Simulated assay, not measured.
Amino acid sequence: MTAETIAAPADLTDAQRKALAALADRPGSKAAEIALAAGIGGSTAGKALTALESHNLAYREHGETIGGRRTADRWYDRPVVPAPEAPSADEAETAPEAAAPARQSARAEALTSEASTVAPEADVPQAPAEAPKTGKPATSTRLARGGLRQMVYEHLEGHPSDEVTAPRLAKALGRSAGAVANALAKLTEQRQADLVGESPRRYRLAGRE
């Protein structure tokens, strides 16, 4: 797998859109579970998921064969990988918002100094200086470019003997399974990780015997 910029086609059917929305909320679900969550029939859900897979908007983790019977596939959404990032809105607003408190503070100090110079001994109550406005607290948990890939590599490096799958690692890191799968694929391309198994795909730190 390689990370690509994916544009969702405009001609998705209503069932496909419902399945995609349910899949985004419930990564790792079986087709029957997606059908129930999306409010569509089982066969309709199966066709919709297969169509989403063909559009590169979803992928499946094939079930395992246990006791001669094959377990159901589990499905995951494949998030759109953004093009090279421009400065985020939060970053673009940081400079003017950070400068405003400094200007207001300097203005308040100038007014206070002027008042004390004109009447240093007068016992005249002065209005409190206006408290500088603070910018909005940062609430975004968006990682810097390449940040998720670094998180994934550090996990592999910290557990060099472990074989991990994208869904389990995504749960451990609190990130999207599709994004973690893309990061693992990129690390494999860069020879920092090895793909050691299929169905499900399993990865390990590169260079381990």
Rank of each mutant, 00 (worst) to 15 (best):
L36I: 08
N182R: 12
E93T: 02
D162R: 15
D14E: 14
P137Y: 06
H55F: 08
I40K: 01
K186E: 13
G146W: 01
A119L: 04
A170C: 10
G41C: 09
D194M: 01
G146M: 01
A32F: 00
I6M: 03
E121F: 14
G46P: 00
E163R: 12
R142E: 15
R145K: 05
A172M: 11
G135D: 07
Q190M: 02
D162E: 15
R149K: 15
R175Q: 15
D90M: 12
A8V: 13
A193F: 06
P200Y: 02
P9K: 07
S43W: 00
A127Q: 10
R26L: 13
G28V: 05
R142M: 09
A92P: 02
E163K: 05
R201I: 04
T188Y: 07
A31G: 14
I40G: 07
R202Q: 01
S161H: 08
R204K: 08
S116A: 15
A3Y: 00
E93K: 07
L111Q: 09
L156K: 05
S116G: 01
R69I: 14
G42A: 04
R70F: 02
N56T: 07
E154N: 14
G46V: 03
A129M: 03
M151G: 10
T112R: 15
A206G: 08
L156F: 05
P200G: 08
R175C: 04
P120Y: 05
A45D: 04
Q192M: 02
G197D: 10
P87I: 00
E109M: 12
H55M: 13
L187P: 11
P132W: 12
A119R: 04
V81K: 01
P120K: 09
Q16E: 15
A35T: 02
I66S: 04
A193Y: 02
E64N: 05
S105D: 10
A95V: 14
P137L: 07
T188R: 03
T94G: 00
S199V: 05
P84A: 08
A92G: 02
A15H: 08
A185R: 06
H159R: 12
G135A: 09
G63T: 11
P137H: 04
A177S: 14
L184R: 04
R142S: 14
E97M: 10
P120M: 10
V196L: 04
P84R: 12
A99N: 10
S29Q: 04
T94L: 03
A32P: 09
L111V: 13
S29A: 15
D77G: 06
A122Q: 13
A185W: 07
P200Q: 05
A35Q: 06
G42I: 01
H62Q: 11
A177Y: 11
T5W: 00
S105Y: 07
W75D: 00
A193N: 03
L156V: 06
